[in-house]
Nucleic acid binder design. Structure first.
Ligand SMILES: Nc1ncnc2c1ncn2[C@@H]1O[C@H](COP(=O)(O)OP(=O)(O)OP(=O)(O)O)[C@@H](O)[C@H]1O
Length: 787
DNA sequence: GCCGCGCCCCTTTTT
DNA sequence: GGGGCGCGGC
């Protein structure tokens, strides 16, 4: 078939030898171990495209698993480009948790033994904590002594090791763990009586279902015949077991296609705290002994200086296999190191530098820039400066929006409509807005519900029969019961966005917020939530509710972008923005320009990891992951003082800086920041030139250890950007006025105009229906041309 | 029953 | 810098 060869040529054209081998080895297990930027993810996407377009594999037989939502979205987008929207939509691409949620929901009939029904809800972190707290109270344990966060972490660790409460108690190595095992038991009871699951349950229950129900497993083995796992090094035990079951069946009942392609890099293993372990690679080799192993050695992402620096940091880890990694992209620019006076100045420096990059045209779009940090808390200092400098940015993985009270309240209503036995949500909103059902009435109702073995919802419906509650309380409860029943019946009548409207209006929550000026912002948040719900308007409402709530729980909603001026929330595709992201979430991504901030002892490596050699190695890998995200320019930034929980703390430079040979650094760009640049004196003493010269001499310097190899001055040459660095973008517009287009959210539309602006194409599209006219950047918007 | 104040702890990292 | 929680005043 000649088209085949042509297609094949096209797909294989952008691949090197070993990559081609990986892509065309479509049958049997495949293990790809390779360093960053070597095209592992590219192999997965091209392999999938090859399967579908050259080997005639139907797209619904394809499964691709990622670890973060962002990675799943990126892969979906890459595949849409390679195989087209309609085919890509038929594949299953998602995180383990999302896949498990989908499986469990689909197998609703078999959930009864687990104490769940189809309408189970996935609890977010806060709700999980609330249940732990409840469990502690039920067991008469002191919350001060047994901190919720600690107990929660211990329970989660046990669940990820697939231990039952009983097994956890047996294996307890300290008293706290024994107590946690008791809490675990109660916590599971509470979860189930709420008809709810936590994140760990999703994995464990699916594994259990597949392991015990062989016909069910067989169906999924039939369905997903080509399995791909990205970032395999971060698999934990239940996740690996899922892959094994799907690809090879259980020891007792072998099965599955055996077509399992896993790709990973042990130097990028950064989730061992979540149960990831290098043992999974060994397990894979044991369980799939015939696996073809392919190594990739050429890095296509970064320039040599960046790679060198990254490898110098990770090379200090013991017990790692050295991998060859080279780039043909040339030496490239040197790294830029900057030391700021404090964390505020750190943010200011980054913001300034970004403005300069844009002004000089060294970077065409803000989207080419990412700022990475170790802890989420570090984003605030950056955000403040970005707001001041009017730099649009987006914080990836920020859950802030979904943590707002009004948003949580609305979501609690929605969850209750789906799953009336969600006592947690009912408790939350029974008196929101105020309907005179205070803690006393609620407490009495709960006590009674427990006594009568009713869910809170059923108890509410029958509150007339309550023996002791007074008339006023009963009236209030009855009225609320009717309200809920009425809202529940409107699920059948309304689309999801309209359902949200009805909830807001009928509960009186909307009117209350709109009535006061203070409520205005909160009301606009509810409108924002409604906007997210609009994506589900076309789907049958009860299914839409399920999907919407699942998405909120697992994805934490859209990545939130914020404009400079007014702080309004905008969605990702709406504008060109700088990315703010944790090092963890950045794994698998790449950006032309990367800033890593907080290269301080205590931050990176994090203070909690400093005492343990294993954890310190993980910090090193984290730095490695961060460095290797950069394509052509890498900034390493730190602050000498930092506010920590309010008070000021002096920091020392990260020990990782000392691992980088000084000749890989350029000086700070520009003359005015040269004043701020810092240097190490010959004696290893650290000295700074900006602001003041107060003597902090008693503080120790540079990693604190005199024995540390000391750095000399990073060469103090002026930084000159090379013209080759300016990224090139197409000179001709892709769309013309009159073109018919399809957008994944807004549907069909007609291009009104198209213009090129600093190398990016912007189109104005008139969409059909309520979306109306929109201006989109083609750098972000996914637009398909329609014939 | 509501609200405001002050105290405490908190921070890894993600689903 | 901030969120949760308990206490005390209205
Ligand atoms: N053969 C190739 N020719 C040109 N570009 C390539 C080739 N292989 C990979 N690339 C490019 O290199 C970059 C890195 O690829 P990719 O993200 O797949 O690497 P990776 O191994 O998954 O990296 P990481 O481990 O850091 O996630 C991408 O921009 C990709 O398009």
């Amino acid at each position: 078939m000649p088209e085949h060869t042509e297609l094949e040529q096209e797909l294989l054209a952008g691949l090197n030898g070993p990559q081609r081998e990986a892509v065309t080895t479509t049958e049997g297990p495949l293990l790809i171990l390779a360093g960053p930027g070597s095209g592992k993810t590219r192999v997965i996407t091209h392999r999938i495209a090859y399967l579908v377009r050259c080997r005639g594999v139907r797209p619904w037989h394809i499964l691709a698993v990622t670890f973060t939502n962002k990675a799943a979205r990126e892969m979906q987008e890459r595949l849409e480009k390679l195989v087209g929207l309609s085919e890509a939509r038929e594949m299953y691409i998602g995180t383990f948790h999302a896949i498990c949620a989908r499986v469990l929901r689909a197998e609703a009939d078999l959930l009864a033994p687990f104490g769940l029904t189809r309408s189970f809800v996935i609890l977010d972190t806060d709700d999980q904590a609330a249940l732990i707290k409840q469990a502690l109270r039920d067991l008469d344990l002191d919350e001060k002594q047994y901190r919720v966060s600690l107990i929660h972490a211990l329970i989660s660790r046990a669940k990820n090791a697939m231990l039952s409460p009983y097994q956890m108690a047996e294996q307890a190595r300290r008293y706290t763990e024994e107590v946690a095992a008791r809490v675990y038991r109660r916590y599971q009871q509470l979860l189930r009586s709420n008809n709810s699951v936590d994140f760990d349950d999703l994995l464990m229950l699916t594994e259990q279902l597949w392991r015990t129900e062989s016909e069910v497993l067989a169906r999924y083995q039939q369905r997903w015949q080509y399995i791909h796992v990205d970032e395999f090094q971060d698999c934990n035990v239940p996740q690996y077991k899922l892959i094994r079951l799907l690809g090879r069946g259980s020891y007792e009942r072998p099965g599955g296609s055996g077509n399992v392609c896993v790709v990973g890099d042990d130097d990028q293993m950064i989730y061992s705290w979540r149960g990831a372990s290098a043992e999974n690679v060994q397990a894979f080799e044991r369980d799939f002994p015939e696996a073809r192993i392919i190594l990739l050695e050429q890095n296509y992402r970064s320039t040599q200086h960046i790679l060198d620096a990254a490898q110098c940091v990770v090379r200090r880890n013991t017990a790692r296999k050295e991998k060859r990694l080279w780039t043909a992209l040339g030496q490239g620019e040197k790294l830029i190191y900057h030391e700021a006076y404090n964390d505020e100045a750190e943010g200011l420096y980054v913001a300034d530098e970004i403005l300069k990059l844009l002004a000089r045209g060294e970077v065409a779009h803000r989207g080419e820039i990412a700022v990475m940090y170790r802890t989420n808390a570090q984003s605030r200092a950056l955000e403040e400066q970005f707001l001041r400098a009017n730099i649009p940015y987006k914080v990836i993985g920020s859950r802030k929006f979904y943590e707002r009270k009004e948003v949580k309240d609305m979501l609690a209503y929605l969850r209750l409509l789906l799953n009336p036995h969600d006592d947690l949500s009912l408790q939350r909103i029974i008196n929101v807005p105020n309907r005179k059902i205070g803690p006393k009435s609620l407490g009495e109702l709960q006590r009674w519900a427990r006594e009568e073995q009713l869910s809170l919802y059923d108890a509410l419906q029958r509150s007339e029969d309550h023996p002791t509650l007074g008339r006023a309380a009963k009236n209030a409860l009855q009225q609320f019961a009717h309200l809920l029943a009425e809202l529940r019946s409107s699920v059948a009548e309304l689309r999801l966005p309209e359902l949200l409207d009805r909830v807001a209006e009928r509960t009186g929550y909307g009117p209350e917020l709109r009535a006061s000026p203070e409520g205005e912002e909160r009301w606009s948040n509810i409108l924002e939530l409604r906007r997210v719900a609009e994506d589900y308007a076309e789907i049958e409402t009860s299914l839409a509710l399920e999907l919407f709530l699942e998405n909120v729980a697992l994805v934490g909603g859209a990545d939130v972008a914020q404009t400079g001026e007014d702080g309004t929330l905008l969605h990702e595709e709406d504008q060109d923005a700088v990315t703010l992201i944790t090092l963890h979430a950045a794994k698998g991504l790449e950006f032309p320009v990367v800033f890593i901030v907080g290269l301080d002892e205590g931050i990176l490596p994090h203070g909690r990891s400093i005492d343990s050699p294993e954890q310190l190695e993980e910090e090193r890998r984290l730095a490695y992951v961060g460095f290797t995200r950069a394509m052509r320019r890498l900034y390493l930034v730190r602050a000498r003082r930092r506010s920590y929980f309010g008070d000021v703390v002096y920091t020392e430079p990260s020990r990782f800086l000392a691992d980088i040979p000084p000749d890989l650094f350029a000086s700070s760009p520009g003359s005015e920041s040269r004043r701020q640049s810092s240097t190490w004196e010959r004696g290893g003493r650290y000295e700074s030139y900006d602001h003041d010269h107060e003597d902090y001499g008693s503080r120790r310097v540079y990693g604190g250890a005199a024995s540390r190899p000391r750095r000399s001055v990073p060469a103090d040459t002026t930084f000159t950007p090379s013209s080759a660095d300016v990224s090139s973008t197409p000179a001709a517009p892709r769309f013309q006025p009159g073109d018919r287009v399809l957008h994944h959210l807004f549907g069909q539309g007609i291009v009104l105009k198209s213009e090129l602006e600093s190398g990016s194409e912007f189109v104005e599209v008139q969409f059909q229906g309520k979306h109306g006219k929109k201006r989109l950047s083609l750098d972000y918007a996914r637009l398909e041309r329609l014939p």
